[in-house]
Amino acid sequence: MWFHSIGLLLRGVRVTFDLFLLQLFTGVALGAIYVLVALGLSLIFGLLTIVNFAHSQFFMLGAYVGAFIMGFVGNFWLALVGVPIVVGLIGMVCERFLIRPLYGRGIDYPLLLTFGLGLIILEIVRMLAGTAGIPFGTPPSLSGAVDLGVFFFPKYRLFLIGITAVILVGLWLFLERTSYGLIIRAGARDQEIVQILGIDVSKVWLVVFGVGIALAGLAGLLAAPIRGVFPEMGVPVLVEAFVVTVVGGMGSLFGAVVAGLLVGITVSFTSFYFPQMATLSMFLLMALVLIFRPRGLFGRAGLLD
């Protein structure tokens, strides 16, 4: 088996620059999904100090809500707008009635709660939509490939990169340029001072949780044409998102973006050169980062103390 890998590696060594670029682009597209999932996870952790174990099930829910909207109106763009709104609102209801009573009780209570919540969402989807999974094709306007000059690249993956970039810019503007963003940035550092200055933090937490969950739902929809839609589609995502969050540094949004892309690119290259190592590669990357930077690439001290 191993000499097969070496063979692939040798073939890899000879690959041309355009093949390298192709793998890089594929990695960025893969990473785009990681970025969206990890951003939500990091946003929620950074402000609410909640490790949201239900995150990947909201990802799955996003794909199902998307499939449902598609089934009704057959329009992918409508699903693209509808999914974050619907899933985000479900997330806000969960925050308001399930998580809020647990604030101030330490990190383990919400952790257990979200773990259970994830299982409940999974079972509800299994009951309502069946265990088999449902088909979800690439939207016609986004199928096929585009000629990028040096290589042909799937149009849908290019769209993934584009929309993630748009969301990142939007989120950045929201955090840096609006009063709400200012409150969120300050609240992540010092919750008490934000309260003292007259801000009702429970409202802020509600919105932040909703935004984080909306991002997970959106990521699920975007991943649907690539990964397929089935109840267990979230299971590997939770692991991937945690790897990304740990590599980037818990609670760091910038870290989530950099690490998401880094993990995507790592997985993309290893799938090409060492397919057997593809899944393992992200854990090796995590181990490597943690040896040199125990808090992750951009982690802050004391967040978990």
Binding site: S179, L182, I183, A186, I193, V194, L197, G198, I199
Partner: peptide, 9 residues
């Protein structure tokens, strides 16, 4: 931004 924070609430 710290000063603005005193105004937003």
């Amino acid at each position: 931004e710290n000063l603005r924070l005193g105004l937003v609430g």
